[in-house]
Design a binder for these strands. Structure first.
Lengths: 109, 109
DNA sequence: ATTATTGCTATGAATACCATAGCAAAGGTT
DNA sequence: AACCTTTGCTATGGTATTCATAGCAATAAT
């Protein structure tokens, strides 16, 4: 385990990781996944859950997330996490924990 | 553990998490942390490690990350992860693992 | 003294994101 | 059936973010 992390520290950033980080930096991408943790949500419900996302961006992200097979569209219920999406949720759960443990409040201008 | 995740699924998105997700979506923010996993890097080294980041954005992110006390500036060596930054690295290590296990390649246009 | 490296700042163009309005299709109600 | 509501999206035009590139003062190395 410690060994695994040591190797991670030495190895150059993999292209897969570079892409994952790049994708993570698209606005609302991770938030959408996080909101879907509760179960399937339709377009408007997701919009409301995210707070202030504009529909054009939501629409774009949904397409992207579907192309990556992180979420899937189901006929009457809207969108839900795929298996890969569920695994990504587990990672985000760690981020949630981290954010709660942060000594400095994560305020941004 | 399963219980903890169940609770996460039910609870609304905390404001701390919302901010963490928002911050994660600033371009290069997580990548910078990931590149610093190897140890302290100076400005130009970080620039090179990230590949194509423009100096103005790097500069801005470094300020933000310092304000959040995720990284710290050390006189001759450049920038390095703080304790909180190291913890965030652990989360990113999970993301790295996830990206490697992804069945669909994370390609983006 | 000269050259190279480093840490930045400035600038203008390209891209991403925003708020808002609106509309066709489907579902529910009377 | 006629009406109203909800839903999933598209269109538009403005604002913010990020980009590539150039450059410059300060420090370090030769």
């Amino acid at each position: 385990m410690a060994q695994r992390i040591q190797n991670l520290r030495r190895a150059p950033t993999s292209s897969k990781m570079a892409r994952a980080l790049d994708f993570s930096s698209r606005r609302w991408a991770l938030r959408i996944i996080w909101e879907l943790r509760v179960g399937p949500l339709n377009f408007r419900a997701l919009q409301a859950a995210c707070g202030r996302i504009s529909p054009s961006v939501l629409q774009r992200r949904l397409h992207e997330l579907r192309a990556l097979q992180i979420i899937e569209k189901i006929p009457r219920l809207g969108y839900r996490l795929s298996t890969a999406g569920e695994k990504l949720f587990q990672v985000l759960a760690q981020l949630d924990k981290w954010s709660r443990d942060m000594p400095v409040p994560l305020e941004q201008k």
